[in-house]
């Protein structure tokens, strides 16, 4: 009897804390984001604001207004506590290395900010379109037909890829597969001014899906 009571009490606490997480409040996370001055380098209100190269160069960090559609939640929460460089070279530079000095958050604050950032989603990203796959066709596009590997680190055998774009080594755990396709298809919506060419029209829709599947499979 007493044992049963303790067990059900324990279950109740577990249930409570689970509800507590699911019901967490993005507004509280937004408060933590502001209190840590994250907004000095990242804007969180869409749509994209950059119109000229000057506008892009003035940004001190990537835009985060569609973060909830772009990132995988577990990766984001972990990265905010231990932010290892994503780009080899410094943001907006072609001459300096990434100093690797991104601000860190404690576990509680990281969870809270993740809650806020994951609430920033956009309608342009359709869910369930891209399934990660070791696509031979996707690989052919990425390393042979198109210059993707010239600017992005990837799990290659001898040639490991270029350094000017974000590393895609862990794209399969970092990025939402559906966002990768949406980004290739509507690059100007997300990053109107960027060092990466627009491939929509160079690649067919089928090829963009294939290469997105391939990138989403990098672990």
């Amino acid at each position: 009897m007493r044992f049963a009571v303790i067990v059900s009490f324990g279950l109740g606490v577990a249930a409570l804390s689970v509800t507590g997480m699911v019901g967490a409040d993005p507004a509280a996370g937004e408060g933590v984001f502001k209190a840590n001055n994250c907004g000095d380098c990242h804007y969180t209100q869409g749509p994209a604001q950059e119109k000229t190269i000057g506008d892009q160069m003035a940004k001190k960090g990537p835009e985060l207004w569609y973060a909830g559609s772009k990132f995988q939640q577990p990766w984001l929460e972990q990265w905010l506590q231990d932010p290892q460089p994503i780009r080899h070279i410094k943001y907006n530079s072609v001459t300096e290395e990434n100093p690797g000095d991104h601000p860190k958050l404690a576990a509680g604050d990281a969870a809270s900010v993740t809650e806020f950032l994951m609430s920033l989603t956009v309608a342009e990203v359709e869910a369930g379109v891209i399934k990660p796959k070791k696509s031979a066709k996707g690989r052919l596009i990425f390393v042979k037909k198109m210059p993707c590997s010239g600017c992005h680190e990837f799990p290659g055998k001898k040639f490991k890829g270029g350094r000017s774009g974000p590393s895609l080594l862990n794209a399969g755990t970092r990025l939402n597969p559906d966002w990768i396709y949406a980004y290739l298809k509507n690059i100007d919506t997300f990053k109107p001014i960027r060092m990466m060419p627009n491939f929509n029209g160079v690649l067919t829709d089928k090829d963009m899906k294939g290469v997105a599947q391939y990138v989403a499979n990098f672990k």
Partner: peptide, 10 residues
């Protein structure tokens, strides 16, 4: 000689 051009650049 941009930053993408490492020794293995094809």
């Amino acid at each position: 000689d941009g930053p993408n051009v490492t020794a293995d650049f094809p």
